[in-house]
Write a protein that binds this DNA or RNA. Structure first.
Lengths: 502, 502
DNA sequence: TTGTGGGCCGAATGCCGACAA
DNA sequence: TTGTCGGCATTCGGCCCACAA
């Protein structure tokens, strides 16, 4: 219980309150984290990069802090790892207990292939499908890829005219979801009908998000989510995973070599915990401008890897973090894509001259093949988006959201928006953007129809913006009040389009 | 911007982030806070009670803290007061900047009637109506009390057959809400139709909550909310208003006599900031078992005041807080109501022998009259509830909510629940209780109908509980999954009843 | 004076196969 | 093989008055 005595030296920093502790199925957690993520294990050696950790603060308006120094690369031993999932968003994250280990850099560490880390093994009976507009529409259910249904769901009696069954699946929190699974239509296909809509609404899924089904060895069906919106900074990151208190205590713990906790979002943009062997390998390479590279951990479909060229090497903040390797490489991506982050850390890339590409291919190609057969085809833009997506990314430098900055340091995928209330409507050059207050949803593009409930006034988004004289200043934004909400007419939603209700 | 240097001595404790700063209309803020709340002003002398402050932590599972001592009564000077409102819930709270003042107890303070505090004056052109089931139902709009409409809304042209106008009202955050105000029906009455439903949904209002309209001197219409759910600890309290960091810094600030900030919820249960003159007056009284008292600040309708008898005097935690007056009086309420808090602080009661009741009546009776004419009739139980409400309160000692304790230290009012997801269904003796995860909604009582969407299976809540064998152990609770949600059939809701959708 | 319910209509939801990519 | 659409039945939202407390 509580009491009136306080220990200023108590180490309760970064600890996630017990109420958000869940022990999701290890398999499901990894599936949600993504196939390219290798989780440090207890006892592993890692490098903690406080600069990357503090990057999570970008979206906050904390007062600036000064007076205490910390090395840019903190060598640590992993004391404990807890796998967790955010209650509201189903986002997976790991709470890692670390202890600084200054001897490590002098020590010879076994540099075998994976440095003693968890090897990412293939997950059987799993599929992951990026939701289509039809899947998320209120008009229908979820269309299950045939091989996925056969691989993961209990078999149906195909002799019946319209075979169906009830599927029961557990999410990351152990909540149970029930779906009607039916095999019907001409031609026949697998569908989830009753129950699906509730799942979409409850998890606030939008087209572009991915849903993941997994039949465990215990034959229990589980399901998870991978949201398309991969802003580096999520609300969870900023509010829970790092605050001043915990960072202050991190600094203290590093100096005192006591255990400290950090929360790490495997799908977030800031990889501030790096396996020691990866770090050592990368810093041993002599990078120079003009070198070509492949980006690691960027896509799941390895048929096209993102490549680029190093344009320069410089410290990002020589005043506060002298000697830091954090995002010290300035790069240009081959696609001419302006919005790609133009700085990467050495360990994030694979230099062609550091490791032979043929050797790497032979390691990863079997995985690649299995990925393809398991329908992991997220992050592919449909062809007709290609032309527009460039304009898009151009327009997305910053989005003002309730006084906060949201930094887009990853690929973004356009998503239709529903249930949007209290949003900010912002014209970004040619593309109006809508950002919901809770930063969960965002949509942008040309609107098709604005319907005025009551007066039935119809206009387009463009007309609305003209009416509000917003085209003149793209930085100005309009508040969409809680009453003027985006309607729930998901059937009217198109990618790049939305319906407003005024 | 951020940097890598940290000042361990920086005083950013307890400061609410700028994003939640709003400067609501002073008048509206006071109206939402409730008529009995007197706000300390800049320069006032107050007593800060850390025990009460820490009470906000009760619902949390912070690790226990020890090692630093703090006096149970900290005499403070009010340096600044900021009036704020919670973004999500519209809950009003005040951020007070205090500085410890140890000289104060020796000094003679002018003990005039209100000690220099804001006198709570009558708010003209204001009304507050407790929402009925019809008001919150999707089936209809909001029925405006006639005198309220005439007093607060612009006049309608009654010569017309169905006079109507558009009302524009600002909430605490300055958001604008538009309602169609129409005078129709047989017999004629004032109604808010178009726009009302969106307001109810957006603010997540349920029957039993109160809505408050206020026409300012500037003729601007404003509206606020007083939620029926008056648990002492809200999510806002626990997450934002107090965390370890801020309390640690409070201790430091008190010892160093620097300014510290506390957030105070005027509608919350823990009154840990008390006007100095009230404190002095109350501790000068010699309380003894058997003395009768009236409870202060308990109800808004002063026709029936809550009375009780002192059963004992004892410190609540003599080990950690020796000499503390915080809730040192053990009391029994006259109604035989078991669930009423059985401990109060001396300044929370009016002893009959300390101040003459006739004198008090003469001060408060004019206010009482005006309250009545302004429809401030919340917290009156309808007659047919009387029999059940006793059983209810008996059943409400503790409710387990996601591993947290929710302490009910105020009167609770039963409310129907909608949009309830991820709730905990708990049979409390004869009355099942449903508590939503976000602790915003709760309902209890006998259910009327449980409808199973899909199978259309109908059962009562009681049957459900029997099925789950929950009647045998009232402390056991059932998790209602996110899919098994309370339906949004607000029209089917009754007070003491709800509709479940399985 | 005002809370609730029924009537009524249009909109939204949700299950279905057709069709085509 | 599977994404989207039109068809259609049902439910829900929301405005109206009648009735009664």
């Amino acid at each position: 219980m509580m009491c009136g005595l306080i220990d200023l030296n108590s180490d309760d920093s970064g600890e996630v309150p017990a109420s958000s502790y869940v022990s999701p199925s290890l398999e499901l957690w990894h599936a949600c984290a993504g196939p390219q993520f290798s989780l440090p294990k207890k006892g592993n050696s890692v490098v903690y990069l406080p600069q990357g950790h503090l990057d999570l603060r970008r979206s906050h308006d904390f007062p600036s802090i000064s007076g205490v120094h910390l090395a840019p690369h903190v060598f640590c031993r992993v004391v404990d790892v807890k796998l967790l999932a955010e209650q509201g968003t189903d986002e997976v994250f790991a709470q890692m207990s670390l202890v600084a280990d200054t001897e490590m850099k002098l020590r010879e560490v076994e540099l075998d292939d994976n440095g003693g880390f968890d090897v990412k093994q293939f997950t059987p009976h799993m599929f992951c499908k990026t939701l289509t507009a039809s899947d998320t529409s209120t008009h229908g259910g979820f269309s299950v890829p045939r091989r996925a249904a056969e691989d993961c769901f209990p078999p149906l009696d195909y002799k019946q005219q319209r075979p169906s069954q009830e599927l029961v699946a557990e999410d990351l929190h152990g909540n149970v979801w029930r779906f009607r699974h039916i095999y019907r239509g001409q031609p026949r296909r697998h569908l989830l009908t009753t129950g699906w809509s509730g799942f979409v609404n409850s998890k606030k899924l939008v087209a572009g998000d991915a849903v993941l089904f997994l039949r465990g060895e215990d034959n229990v069906l589980r399901l998870g989510i991978r949201r398309a919106s991969c802003f580096g900074v999520t609300s969870a990151d900023s509010s829970k995973l790092l605050n001043d208190f915990s960072f202050v205590s991190v600094v203290k713990s590093v100096s005192q070599k006591t255990v400290f906790n950090v929360c790490f979002n495997p799908r977030g943009g800031s990889r501030f915990i790096v396996p020691y062997h990866e770090f050592v390998r990368s810093v041993s390479i002599k990078f120079s401008p003009g070198m070509r590279f492949n980006l690691r951990f960027e896509t799941e479909d390895t048929t096209e890897r993102f490549t680029g060229i190093i344009t320069g090497i410089s410290e990002i903040d020589p005043v506060n973090w002298p000697g830091s390797k954090w995002r010290c490489l300035m790069v240009r991506s081959d696609g001419g894509d302006v919005t790609r982050q133009n700085r990467v850390s050495p360990w994030e890339i694979e230099g062609c001259n550091s490791i032979s590409s043929s050797g790497f291919d032979s390691i990863f190609s079997p995985v690649t093949k299995r990925i393809k057969t398991n329908f992991r085809s997220e992050f592919q833009l449909p062809e007709d988006w290609a032309g527009r997506s460039l304009d898009f990314k151009k327009s997305l430098g910053f989005q003002v959201l309730q006084g906060q900055e949201i930094v887009c340091n990853n690929f973004m995928q356009p998503t239709p928006v529903m249930h949007l209330q209290n949003a900010i409507l912002q014209p970004a050059y040619s593309h109006p953007i809508i950002v919901a207050n809770d930063s969960r949803y965002r949509a942008f593009g040309e609107g098709y129809l604005v319907q005025n409930n009551g007066h039935k006034k119809h206009e387009t988004i463009s007309d609305l913006l003209k009416e509000k004289s917003l085209y003149s200043n793209p930085k100005q934004s309009t508040h969409i009040g809680p009453q003027e909400s985006v309607s729930t007419c998901r059937s009217n939603c198109r990618l790049f389009g939305f319906t407003l209700q005024f």
